[in-house]
């Protein structure tokens, strides 16, 4: 498998949210605006890349019987780092994401990549895999955030899209919880219908 394939597999073909349907909790909870979705995606990408890096470096020294607790410890270290960094540098974003920043630690996407890929692969490949999977997650959250923010708030990154009359009376339920379930349900149905099986 070429380096490019390793990168694009997680980005599109095995997209965590839209294809594998994992990491759903943050994907639905913090995709009410583009900024929240993008920020959450980048935070998860950071954790994924660095945990893949460390686990790949240590892969020959980790005893098989206790590998899962070790993976969790490595992951939670980077989650704590991003938790405190976001609190210091992006306090508004941190407040919007709330409990979902520390909860990156139980995102099955990250433990899944550590177990299925980084514990068996070279350092460079693991970083590429982490980057692809993480950016695929970011892409999914940004797409959902775009749809929900435009319909539910009439804005894109805070800029008015359809003019003031829509802005003052948008489809408000799209930025509330039912909108999240509805958007991902419709996106998944469109993927089922229009994306060819061999691409999935």
């Amino acid at each position: 498998m070429t380096k490019l394939n390793i990168f694009t597999r997680g980005l599109v073909k095995e997209n965590a949210v839209f294809v594998l349907m994992i990491g759903l909790c943050p994907a639905l909870a913090v995709s009410s605006t583009v900024r929240d979705g993008f920020g959450m995606g980048l935070a998860a990408t950071f954790v994924l890349v660095f945990s893949n890096l460390i686990i790949s470096i240590l892969r020959k020294n980790i005893p098989n019987e206790v590998r899962i607790p070790i993976f969790i410890l490595v992951i939670s270290t980077f989650v704590t780092i991003i938790d405190y960094m976001m609190q210091a540098f992006q306090p508004d974003l941190y407040r919007a994401l709330g409990v979902f920043v520390p909860l990156i630690v139980v995102n099955c996407m990250i433990l899944g990549r550590a177990e299925a890929y980084a514990s068996k692969s070279s350092v460079v490949n693991s970083i590429l895999d982490g980057l692809g999977t993480g950016l695929g997650f970011t892409l999914a959250l940004t797409i959902m955030g775009t749809i929900r923010e435009i319909l539910g708030n009439g804005t894109f990154l805070g800029l008015t899209v359809f003019g003031e009359s829509f802005r003052s009376a948008p489809v408000i339920f799209m930025i509330m919880s039912p909108g999240a379930f509805l958007v991902i349900g419709i996106l998944k149905a469109l993927i089922n219908k229009y994306v060819k099986r061999e691409l999935r």
């Binding site: 339920f173 509330m176 039912p178 509805l182 349900g185 998944k188 089922n192």
Partner: peptide, 23 residues
């Protein structure tokens, strides 16, 4: 149910309606 809605999509839409009720 329409085949492309089967499984996850229709479950999400059902969950969406439940969430609307819980609102």
């Amino acid at each position: 149910i329409n085949p492309s809605l089967r499984g996850y999509p229709i479950s999400f839409i059902a969950a969406s309606l439940m969430a609307l009720a819980f609102l």
